[in-house]
Simulated scan of single mutants.
Amino acid sequence: MDDPVSSWVFPGAEYRRVRHSGLMGAFTDATLAEGSGGYVDLLEDDSAVALWMEVPDAPHADDEDGPAQVREAVDPDNARIEEIARLLDEAHPQGRAHTYLWMIGVAPERQGEGLGTALMTPVLDRCDRAGRPAYLEASSARSRALYERLGFTVMNRPLQLPDGPTMWPMWREPQGG
């Protein structure tokens, strides 16, 4: 909830506290929807979670209404929900199958303990064995540094949210021999 992008989408601590969980619920529902190719990794003590999607090589069908539907379901008066969904969709690479880390979160009191790395490493190992690249958007300089340590590189140019923080689309080619 304290992520710079979450703070931009839901300005104000109380507003974010009330509305943020609705967006996370929508992300989880989309991840687990039939045919999505998505899955959730959760640490045994519920201190960290990652939402992953298996993206096919075919270009995805444009869902013009998807961002608007998420906004309507989560917070109809918040245009930033729809805006960020559209910006991230435009930045997302197409034409090559990959594993997408849609969202990762670690309980604030547990951050810095390596839990994000613990969630990501098995998936990245599977990607390496399968020869499959991975993609994500870093939402802070701190997360960008973590992802760089895990072999991700910044693609093209950063994504600057209007009057908000920077995000970094990142790609990781399969590693190893």
Score class of each variant (00 low, 15 high):
residue 60 H to V: 12
residue 131 G to V: 06
residue 113 E to Q: 14
residue 57 D to L: 04
residue 13 A to V: 14
residue 10 F to V: 08
residue 38 G to C: 08
residue 57 D to N: 09
residue 161 L to F: 08
residue 134 A to Y: 03
residue 7 S to T: 15
residue 44 E to S: 15
residue 154 V to E: 12
residue 170 M to I: 02
residue 69 Q to R: 15
residue 91 A to E: 07
residue 70 V to E: 06
residue 9 V to K: 02
residue 133 P to Y: 02
residue 163 D to N: 14
residue 144 R to Y: 04
residue 175 Q to H: 12
residue 147 Y to I: 01
residue 72 E to L: 13
residue 47 S to H: 06
residue 32 L to H: 10
residue 80 R to V: 05
residue 102 W to R: 14
residue 136 L to D: 01
residue 161 L to H: 10
residue 171 W to D: 04
residue 43 L to S: 15
residue 114 G to V: 01
residue 135 Y to E: 11
residue 158 P to Y: 08
residue 158 P to Q: 06
residue 2 D to F: 09
residue 45 D to W: 09
residue 126 R to V: 10
residue 63 D to S: 12
residue 45 D to F: 06
residue 28 T to A: 13
residue 71 R to A: 04
residue 90 E to L: 13
residue 23 L to V: 09
residue 122 P to R: 05
residue 30 A to L: 07
residue 84 I to D: 01
residue 83 E to P: 00
residue 9 V to H: 07
residue 119 L to H: 05
residue 117 T to S: 13
residue 124 L to V: 03
residue 84 I to V: 15
residue 2 D to T: 14
residue 128 D to I: 00
residue 60 H to D: 11
residue 172 R to Y: 11
residue 127 C to V: 01
residue 16 R to L: 13
residue 151 G to A: 03
residue 166 T to H: 10
residue 169 P to C: 11
residue 111 Q to F: 02
residue 125 D to N: 09
residue 47 S to L: 01
residue 144 R to A: 12
residue 152 F to A: 04
residue 144 R to T: 01
residue 87 L to G: 00
residue 34 E to M: 04
residue 151 G to M: 03
residue 15 Y to A: 11
residue 4 P to N: 07
residue 51 L to D: 09
residue 148 E to D: 03
residue 102 W to D: 13
residue 139 S to M: 00
residue 53 M to I: 12
residue 9 V to A: 07
residue 33 A to C: 10
residue 159 L to A: 02
residue 25 G to P: 00
residue 98 H to Y: 03
residue 176 G to R: 06
residue 81 I to H: 04
residue 67 P to H: 08
residue 137 E to K: 03
residue 176 G to N: 01
residue 9 V to G: 07
residue 83 E to T: 15
residue 18 V to M: 11
residue 1 M to L: 14
residue 89 D to L: 05
residue 83 E to D: 08
residue 40 V to Y: 07
residue 32 L to F: 05
residue 47 S to W: 00
residue 104 I to E: 05
residue 124 L to K: 02
residue 12 G to P: 05
residue 46 D to G: 11
residue 168 W to H: 01
residue 18 V to Q: 14
residue 98 H to M: 04
residue 145 A to M: 09
residue 8 W to K: 10
residue 10 F to G: 07
residue 30 A to V: 03
residue 70 V to P: 09
residue 129 R to Y: 04
residue 32 L to P: 05
residue 2 D to K: 12
residue 54 E to M: 09
residue 18 V to N: 07
residue 65 D to R: 14
residue 18 V to P: 01
residue 72 E to D: 14
residue 115 L to R: 12
residue 63 D to F: 06
residue 87 L to E: 01
residue 10 F to C: 03
residue 95 G to A: 04
residue 43 L to D: 12
residue 120 M to D: 05
residue 77 D to K: 13
residue 25 G to V: 06
residue 172 R to W: 03
residue 59 P to A: 14
residue 73 A to I: 04
residue 11 P to L: 09
residue 175 Q to D: 02
residue 77 D to R: 14
residue 135 Y to K: 04
residue 77 D to E: 15
residue 56 P to G: 15
residue 64 E to S: 13
residue 29 D to Y: 07
residue 68 A to Y: 05
residue 75 D to G: 06
residue 36 S to N: 06
residue 45 D to G: 02
residue 15 Y to T: 08
residue 51 L to T: 08
residue 161 L to S: 05
